[in-house]
Amino acid sequence: MMFPLTGEPLALDLLNTRPAGAGDLIAGPEGLAAWLAVQEGRLGPAGKVGPAEVAAVHAVREAASAALTAARRGEQPPAGALHALNEASAGAPAHRALAWTPDTGLTAAPHRTGTPARRLAAQLADAAADLLTDPRVQDVRECEGADCVLLFLPAHPRRRWCVASTCGNRARVARYYARHTS
């Protein structure tokens, strides 16, 4: 399964799992497992994915979407969205576990308690909190491509499309066609 525009902040990658015309890419355990495999470098190994994990991720995605919509406008996010994100984050508290390996020496890796669904929801809620508290949250943009709803955090202020070679190219072709058919 292909996921559009991965590599943005994790919370945006989560929100982008509902692209226009493609439905919900993480509607079931198979789709969520595939998305988690793509995100393994940021979330760690997925483990078994079932309906509980899907429900937990959907709840975080809905709350993050509502909070981000308000934050992008400089408005107060809905209290229910913030409550849901806080509950998800608190559902699997994190602490650092110290470990020694001969290859890397002393490490302090985050460790979460709770069920797999709660741990996953907490990681994603923390990613949403990171994005929502980032000073650049109002810079998050929706792609200007026709029928595209993907979100991105532009590294360049003139960026207009999620992927220039896809949505940007479609816009350029449409402008060219409009100029030459009139």
Results as ranks from 00 to 15, higher is better:
M1L: 12
M2H: 11
P4E: 12
L5M: 12
L5T: 03
G7C: 05
G7I: 05
A11H: 11
A11E: 08
L12D: 13
R18S: 15
A20L: 12
G21H: 06
D24M: 05
L25D: 15
L25C: 10
A27L: 08
P29G: 08
E30N: 02
L32D: 09
A33Y: 12
L36A: 06
L36C: 08
A37Y: 14
Q39S: 04
E40M: 12
E40H: 10
G41T: 01
G41K: 02
P45Q: 14
P45M: 03
A46K: 02
G47W: 13
K48F: 11
K48N: 05
G50Q: 09
E53S: 04
V54M: 10
V54R: 10
V57I: 03
H58V: 08
A59T: 09
V60G: 12
A64C: 14
A67D: 07
A70Y: 14
A70W: 14
A70Q: 08
A71I: 03
R72W: 01
R72N: 03
R72F: 04
R72D: 04
R73Y: 04
G74E: 12
G74P: 01
Q76P: 14
P78N: 06
P78G: 07
A79F: 14
A79H: 15
L82I: 15
H83K: 15
H83Y: 10
E87V: 05
A92W: 08
A94K: 03
A94G: 04
H95V: 11
A97Q: 13
A97I: 08
L98C: 03
A99C: 02
W100D: 03
W100L: 01
T101S: 12
T104I: 13
L106D: 07
A109R: 15
A109V: 11
H111N: 14
R112N: 07
T113I: 03
T115I: 06
A117M: 05
R118P: 03
R119F: 05
A122D: 05
A122L: 06
A122Q: 12
Q123K: 08
A127Y: 11
A127H: 01
D130E: 15
L131D: 04
L131K: 07
L131E: 07
L131R: 03
L132H: 13
D134Y: 07
V137N: 12
E142N: 11
E144R: 00
G145E: 10
A146C: 01
D147F: 01
D147R: 01
C148M: 09
V149Q: 14
L150K: 13
F152S: 08
L153S: 04
P154H: 02
A155Q: 11
A155D: 13
P157F: 00
C162W: 00
V163S: 09
V163E: 15
S165V: 05
T166C: 02
C167R: 01
G168W: 00
G168T: 00
A171F: 00
R172A: 00
Y177K: 15
A178L: 12
R179V: 02
H180I: 00
S182E: 15
S182P: 05
S182I: 09
S182R: 14
